[in-house]
């Protein structure tokens, strides 16, 4: 941010210190500095699900080099990570683990759905063990299309995330709100099929209907 953007109009600054001193309000200064720090050191979770993970590694490697965005520090533990790149097909067997990982990440945290599978199920959507998009469970910030997205596409997604972070306001972000710490996503249960605890009443009601599934309807 330039000095003249920061400076509030109406305050005269002597000519000889014009490029050194700025007079501004706390709010106007804090948000850009806070966001700049945050967006320049997004630490992704070292977490690969499928094919997309390889492109994620390629984006980390020499040719594409995510270090230019301050994102080269991959953390294997969710407790130190800011960004979860859901890089690949989310299966029903895996989704309880993914939700747990998300719950363990400290705020502020962001989720990126990388590739067609994480966004919507992709080519495997019809599969019986596939969750049709991670957004059924987690709040997604950025979707990156592609199967798999090229490293360039992933980088574009990361730039979009940075733009999103730039627009945040300290006074409004969810992680400074009262009572926010208690917000955890309930971990899905593996029963006869995947059960989302938030949807138990729906499941009960739909199962009580006479013909419930295509299988029972005989196709």
């Amino acid at each position: 941010m330039e000095n003249n953007e920061l400076n509030l109009p109406g305050y005269e600054i002597p000519e000889d210190v014009k490029n050194v001193v700025a007079v501004t309000t706390l709010d106007r200064l804090l948000n850009p500095v806070y966001n700049w720090g945050r967006r320049s050191s997004v630490w992704p979770l070292m977490f690969g699900l499928a094919c997309c993970a390889i492109e994620m590694i390629a984006a980390q490697a020499s040719r594409y080099d995510l270090a230019r965005f301050g994102m080269e520090v991959m953390r294997p533990t969710p407790r130190q990570a800011d960004l979860m790149i859901v890089s690949g097909t989310v299966t029903k067997k895996m989704v309880p683990a993914i939700v747990r990982l998300y719950n363990q990440m400290p705020e502020p945290k962001y989720v990126m759905a990388m590739g067609a599978c994480a966004s919507s199920g992709g080519p495997f959507k019809e599969g019986y063990n596939v969750v049709a998009g991670i957004d059924k469970f987690l709040p997604v910030d950025v979707y990156v299309p592609g199967c798999p997205p090229t490293p360039q596409a992933l980088m574009n997604g990361l730039i979009m995330l940075q733009k999103k972070i730039d627009k945040e306001k300290i006074s409004q972000v969810r992680w400074y709100r009262k009572g926010h710490d208690s917000v955890e996503i309930p971990v899905p249960i593996l029963g006869p099929d995947l059960i989302d605890p938030r949807r138990i009443p729906d499941i009960k009601a739909a199962a009580a209907q006479p013909v419930t599934t295509p299988a029972q309807a005989g196709g």
């Binding site: 019986y128 049709a132 249960i189 059960i195 739909a206 199962a207 419930t212 599934t213 295509p214 299988a215």
Partner: peptide
């Protein structure tokens, strides 16, 4: 595909399935 499925998702359960009563 979600529209056609009674559970509005990639799910199927036995008839009269009650997640609260079943022990998994």
């Amino acid at each position: 595909a979600e529209v056609k499925n009674p559970f509005r998702d990639n799910l199927q359960f036995p008839a009269d399935f009650d997640p609260e009563k079943v022990t998994f």
